[in-house]
């Protein structure tokens, strides 16, 4: 009998600075599927005035040797300027934005609003029977908030995926 072997895995946050050209996102996402790497989260937006450069934040997991390969394979793409493994580099800030729709009346509605205050989630849309809360924070904080809302009339969740940056004054 034959079994498929598994290796111990790590979770890493990478930022990738790229030329903002057609097909670049497909190139990067496709690299992950083609080589069997995992994407837990991927965000992208242009970061320069002339819209020529984008920054992509990718959260991935895999064995350490695979993380190193992901780094090298990303660098190999011509439109990629720079790849930074923030997890490898050290302390960094990782934030995500979520929109959370909760519907309910009475006690549940009051409780939802109270918990939202605790989490510093802001209502951005209000009807007599619903809220949409906007919150930013570390992904696990959003997880906790969403979990609490489940019993209080959670309708819909939208999350951006994380954006991350190394701590300290220097550019990573």
């Amino acid at each position: 009998m034959m079994h498929i072997h598994q290796e111990a895995e790590e979770r890493h946050v990478l930022t990738v600075t790229v030329d903002n050209e057609a097909g670049i996102l497909a190139k990067i996402a496709g690299l992950f599927t083609a080589r069997g790497y995992n994407i837990d989260s991927l965000t992208v937006a242009d970061i320069t005035d002339n819209h020529e450069v984008s920054r992509i934040t990718i959260v991935t997991h895999g064995p350490p040797s695979q993380i190193d390969q992901i780094h090298a394979q990303l660098e190999r793409l011509v439109p990629v300027h720079k790849v930074v493994d923030l997890t490898e580099l050290g302390p960094h800030v990782a934030r995500e934005l979520a929109l959370v729709k909760v519907a309910g009346v009475g006690d549940k509605r009051v409780e939802a609003l109270r918990i939202a205050e605790v989490f510093r989630a802001r209502p951005v849309d209000t009807t007599t029977e619903s809220f949409i809360f906007e919150m930013t924070g570390a992904p696990d904080k959003i997880d906790s908030f969403v979990a609490l809302m489940r019993d209080l009339g959670l309708v819909e969740v939208g999350r951006t995926g994380i954006v991350a940056m190394a701590r300290g004054p220097e550019e990573a």
Partner: peptide
Amino acid sequence: TVGISRHCTKHNYL
């Protein structure tokens, strides 16, 4: 063509 050849070219252009 650009999509099909994406992962077997060093780089490609449309």
